[in-house]
Design a protein around this nucleic acid. Structure first.
Length: 552
DNA sequence: AGCCTTTGACCAGCG
DNA sequence: TCGCTGGTCAAAGGC
């Protein structure tokens, strides 16, 4: 498997430095003036989206986020969605991810409430306010930091020492990995509790319990629990430590007898979900939360969905997923609709939630050289074309090595967005120069896929001196990936990414119906690809996501 | 009893 | 053909 897993613990360090945090645009220079960077030209994406979708996206003052330079607390979560069909827009149109009027009502709507009284125009908040925010967010928003120790990478998976999460637990909202596992396992039946009883308060309580469990040596679910809740029931049928991955990979099947959807979940030793990959499409609706294990759905609905399924199903490929959703670190309270990436058109995807190393942001250029240099090891030092034929494992090793070499001095990691599109053309004809620095081939009839990185000039780089990259691939349904290495957000919890009220603004519904996935649709529809230095699609998605986060 | 995880073995694709 | 690797099977056991 592979290349479409840009945020795995090893590659994440290579790929993470891509995104500007200002959702308005990727600015040309390292951000010096947030007011500048938060502004976009009159024809900016934000405005255009607003015009199209009929809403405005709030601005996120990333400067303040970045100003939190306590490196020990800086975590760079990485959320990667890498799958065909599950485009950023798809994700963003999730009932919990979007403020999309078209999105179906979700029990979790409102689960990501911006702090009451929090004025998004405010640029700074007290620690208490931040804590309150995180506290409120914690139950529904989880970015899982993963090992940030570059040295740990070289340790065997079974030899890894406990990761120092620094201030990771500082936030009262912190939802421990064990908590996520517990929640997931609860839903999967491993630890069954009353889902109805789960509240945000309970979430926090369980966080503590989870941490206690970890301190007691962890329970059996660490590293092996059910994947985060996504509304469906899953049965684990295998686990394997795959080469090139630090963490074991678990294999799950949908428990619905007529559903052949599978998903692979990689967790760190600490239980953090580092990768989720879907395969196939659910041909049934999500079971009600109170009978999650019932696996019975309305026959009519199922028939309809099966019909749709037959039209879309790419059985045999992990790339094609249909109506797959995933939430990470969810809680029961999210319910069947909540906290999920609802693939409006039924296309699914992969979501990897990860944390990125924390490195210094004042070495962006170096880091870019370093991290991407690590990737460069995969293409060539001279910035030439990619050599996609390098084996995944080898490439990962190279990346890891380069990361190791470059990451030690890093204190802050910045977000990265990797977007997979359906074809290279999607990337290459956007008016910018792209260089292919990696390519992948997968079994399961998936065409080769490459990673493209924008070749940026001095004035054509992200706010943080980080290029925005695309991860296109050839062939049917594409996915996308984006990393959130946002400083200071490492403590965020997004169980199910249930942004709730903070649902991200949706993209036009028309994109939901694009057979090739919205990412492609968006690309082809020319979502102002030339406005931003980075990928418009991915950037806009990311911007939308970030725009939903309160200004801290 | 039912459903789940665990885990070693097995299978298939690929170089 | 063989070894490597990822994915799956299925028995055993737990909740």
């Amino acid at each position: 498997m592979g290349e479409w897993v840009p945020c795995n613990p090893s590659s994440k360090r290579v790929l993470e430095r891509e995104l500007s945090l200002n959702h308005g645009q990727v600015t040309s220079n390292n951000n010096k003036d947030s007011s500048q960077t938060n502004n976009i030209s009159g024809g900016g994406l934000r405005e255009r989206i607003a015009a199209r979708a009929g809403f405005n996206t709030p601005r996120l003052n990333t400067e303040n986020i970045r100003s939190n330079t306590d490196s020990s607390s800086l975590r760079s979560p990485c959320l990667t969605i890498s799958s065909p069909g599950l485009s950023p827009a798809t994700l963003l149109d999730s009932p919990v991810f979007l403020s999309n009027p078209l999105a179906q009502p979700s029990p979790t709507t409102g689960k990501f409430p911006f702090l009451p009284g929090v004025n998004c125009n405010r640029l700074s908040y007290s620690d208490k306010e931040k804590d309150e925010f995180f506290d409120g967010v914690g139950a529904s928003f989880t970015f899982h930091p993963v090992s940030t120790s570059s040295s740990s990478f070289f340790q065997g998976a079974g030899e890894m020492t406990p990761v120092d999460y620094g201030n990771y637990n500082n936030s009262p909202s912190h939802q421990s990995p064990e908590e996520d596992l517990k929640l997931g396992s609860e839903q999967s039946g491993l630890k069954r509790k009353s889902s109805d009883a789960t509240t945000n308060t309970n979430d926090h309580q369980e966080v503590e319990e989870g941490e206690e469990e970890e301190q007691r040596g962890g329970d059996s679910m660490v590293g092996g629990g059910a994947p985060a809740e996504d509304g469906y029931n899953w049965r684990k049928y295998g686990q394997k430590l795959v080469k090139g991955s630090e963490y074991p990979r678990s294999y799950y099947k949908c428990t619905n007898p007529n559903c052949h959807v599978k998903k692979k979940v990689e967790r760190s030793r600490e239980g953090h979900i580092t990768e989720i990959i879907y395969k196939g499409a659910h041909n049934h609706s999500k079971p009600p939360p109170n009978r999650r294990s019932g696996m019975q759905v309305d026959g009519t609905e199922q028939a309809e969905q099966q019909q749709r399924q037959q039209q879309r199903d790419n059985a045999g490929t992990w790339v094609s997923s249909n109506n797959t959703q995933q939430q990470v670190g969810s809680n029961e309270n999210n319910g069947e609709e909540g906290g999920q990436y609802e693939s409006g058109d039924g296309y699914g995807g992969v979501i990897m939630v990860d944390a990125l190393s924390t490195f210094s942001n004042d070495e962006d250029e170096d880091d870019r050289e370093g991290t991407h240099g690590s990737a460069s090891l995969g293409y060539d030092g001279g910035g030439g074309e990619g050599e996609g034929d390098e084996s995944e494992s080898k490439r990962r090793k190279l990346e890891a090595y380069a990361t190791e070499m470059s990451g030690a001095t890093r204190a802050i990691r910045e977000p990265r967005v990797v977007v997979q599109t359906t074809s290279d053309v999607d990337i290459l004809d956007d008016g910018y120069r792209w260089r292919k620095y990696a390519a992948q081939t997968q079994h399961y009839q998936e065409p080769p896929r490459g990673r493209f990185e924008r070749q940026l000039t001095a004035n054509n780089q992200s706010q943080f001196g980080r290029p925005f990259s695309f991860q296109p691939h050839l062939g049917p349904p594409s996915g996308f990936a984006f990393g959130l290495g946002q400083t200071g957000l490492g403590n965020l919890s997004i169980p199910g990414l249930a942004f709730g009220q903070g649902k991200l603004p949706s993209l036009p519904y028309q994109y939901l119906s694009q057979p090739g996935g919205m990412s492609e649709a968006m690309m082809r529809r020319g979502m102002e690809p030339k406005v931003e230095p980075g990928s418009e699609t991915g950037q806009s998605v990311y911007n939308q996501i970030m725009s939903r986060l309160p200004q801290i």
